[in-house]
Amino acid sequence: MRSDLRQNSPAPVSPKPAPLIRAEHIGKSYTAADGNLLPVLQDISLAIEQNASVALLGPSGCGKTTLLHLMAGFLQPDGGQLYYKGKPLGELHPQTGVLFQSPTLFNWLTVEDNVAFGLKRAGLAKAERQARCAGFIRRVGLAGFEKAYPAQLSGGMQQRAALARILVLEPEVLLLDEPFGALDAMTRRNMHKLLFELRKDIPFTTVFITHDVEEAVILAERVVVLSQRPARIIKEVTVPFTPEESLDVDSHAFADIKKQIRTLLEQTE
């Protein structure tokens, strides 16, 4: 069930549904501090189907965040075109939620008010806001912490709250920028499980960045391996596991895929 927060018209009926996000020959450069042009992305073409889960894997500083921010509409590409549901991606579209690399909870608001922030902007009445927020706060396992401020939460709890803040808006796409990079192994695994459970209940498309091969194989159905900067797509690897299987990180099949991707990554160096 999709909420009334979405305003876009239904996609035109076509025999094969267009990918939700499509990048065609995307290029992006920054102007570096010394005034020179710094090419970051080079000829990236990528299609992401509805409800897919795709990992972007690449060496540090290669341009992963840049690619994600292009998909979110925070940045414009220099060349090429991004499509969302077959239409050129314009300004920031409200169907996208981004979980940032570092925690971006509003530290002056309680967990509850953080989660309600987007609904408030969308003009929902207070009672309705509270009802929806309570559900999502419980879903991410933060029941009892509604009145806590972000500074009083652990890193994992902060990312949970940030996740609830996005999911309450029922986005079609969830973009995650190494959201669990700073968490310890146990907390990270719990977050992986949480994501699985959430996706079972409310289907959404996930694109996430990681430089942890294991995390990529666990969470993604498809791993896109990027080269050193300027980033090109080296290869796309399909992960043939069901979500339950991919949580079994000790299996042989899992190790094989990991090895295959790791070899690809090492070639980039």
């Binding site: 979110a72 409200p94 690399q101 971006t104 922030f117 987007g118 803040r165 808006l169």
Partner: peptide, 27 residues
């Protein structure tokens, strides 16, 4: 005020004046 906080505010639907009063001002 960090660029990410502002992006987060924009992503959650705060634009122009709302962005200022609900994000930049308190931050």
């Amino acid at each position: 005020v960090s660029q990410q906080i502002i992006l987060a505010g924009q992503m959650l639907g705060a634009k122009k004046t709302a962005l200022f009063t609900s994000v930049i001002l308190p931050a």
